[in-house]
Design a protein around this nucleic acid. Structure first.
Lengths: 114, 114
DNA sequence: CTGAATCCAAACTGATACTG
DNA sequence: CAGTATCAGTTTGGATTCAG
């Protein structure tokens, strides 16, 4: 199944976590969740510090999980588009909740410093 | 600040993620979120496969992030209790959202197999 | 009972060079 | 343009031993 070695007690939270863990995955998702499909190089430009290797690997994993689709246009030079799936869109509420908690946490830390 | 090497674009989602990533952290949180304080050994028994080392490390990190408190009772043998903080309780909605998505995803995968 | 310390293996990420 | 391949570095987790 999944990387269930990492999910010793079949925790549902971990199942959800496995969709979005990876150094750059949340950022990739953030860009694709806007709805517009993006080409490999467009993502690369939006995430300047990512390596081609990591971008490829993360995109492949997200594709495996039905979060996005990969469409190859048979052209020279090649064109490949990545688009969020309907199913991938269901991550939206979860990610939004996390984003809000994260924003709040940044404030929490500032207060703590005082 | 935080482990911001791991958060290249100051993504708020990653800030939230950093609270709960770690092999056993979601499970630890799950147990403590019930509200009852738990001793080190009680947690160890609830999570049989965790090593003492990992339990200690995860608890320390959660403590650093104000998610839980560590209370030492000066006794012999020692007694140490871990209790979720009020702030830690604010993780609840986020974790519940993730849990629901995870549960749904398990169903999604079953359908896919057919 | 609740750890800390050490050593080791596996997983993850980065850098670089090459290709259809 | 959109990758693949290889190698090196970093991080994470596990096993074991020792200690207040």
């Amino acid at each position: 199944m999944l990387k269930d070695k990492k999910n010793p007690q079949q925790c549902q939270i971990v199942v959800a976590l496995n969709m979005i863990v990876g150094k750059w995955k949340p950022i990739i998702l953030d860009h694709l969740l806007h709805g517009e499909p993006l080409r490999f190089n467009e993502l690369k430009k939006l995430i300047p510090d990512i390596t081609q290797r990591m971008l490829t690997m993360h995109l492949r994993e997200l594709e495996e999980h039905d979060i996005l689709t990969r469409t190859v246009y048979p052209q020279v030079p090649p064109k490949v588009e990545y688009r969020i799936t309907e199913y991938g869109m269901t991550l939206q509420p979860m990610l939004k909740t996390m984003q809000q908690w994260g924003a709040n946490h940044i404030e929490h830390m500032k207060e703590k410093d005082n």
